[in-house]
């Protein structure tokens, strides 16, 4: 099935120099394995190619059911010297959530998954 990330996950962008970090966190941790499979660093780099020079590095935080994408911009596109309106790249979280991916795994319905999300520690 095809999903838009906005419909299953939330995101936060931060910046360091000419890097953006963008986290991707499913509302329902049951979606985490599917997002790990579908939202590859390559897919993110291609989707954000307007701003991100690549290559994108992805970190997995399995305990938290969260992904972090580290996205390099052009060397001169630093927060202080950028000519972009959004010099920090803070709005890129919303750009990532516009990405549509093909999810192969059958994800449990939200009602059942909420119980799983409340188990101590979430996904181990």
């Amino acid at each position: 099935m095809r999903v838009r990330l906005y419909d299953v996950a939330h995101a936060r962008a931060g910046d360091k120099g000419n890097l953006n970090t963008i986290s991707l966190i499913p509302y329902d941790p049951a979606w985490y394995p599917a997002l790990c499979a579908a939202v590859t660093p390559e897919a993110v780099a291609a989707h954000l190619a307007d701003r991100v020079a690549g290559p994108v590095v992805r970190h997995r935080l399995n305990n938290l059911a969260a992904l972090i994408f580290v996205c390099p911009r052009a060397p001169e596109d630093t927060v202080t010297t950028s000519l972009h309106l959004d010099a920090h790249g803070k709005s890129l979280s919303s750009a990532l959530l516009e990405l549509e991916v093909e999810v192969e795994v059958e994800v449990e319905p939200e009602a059942e998954a909420e119980a799983a999300a409340e188990a101590p520690g979430g996904l181990g």
């Binding site: 970090t21 970190h59 938290l64 972090i68």
Partner: peptide, 17 residues
């Protein structure tokens, strides 16, 4: 809650390990 804390925990982290 879990959502606000995880968003901030992952904020501006270039290497969580």
């Amino acid at each position: 809650d879990r959502m606000t804390v995880v968003e901030q925990l992952t904020y501006e982290v270039t290497d969580p390990r």
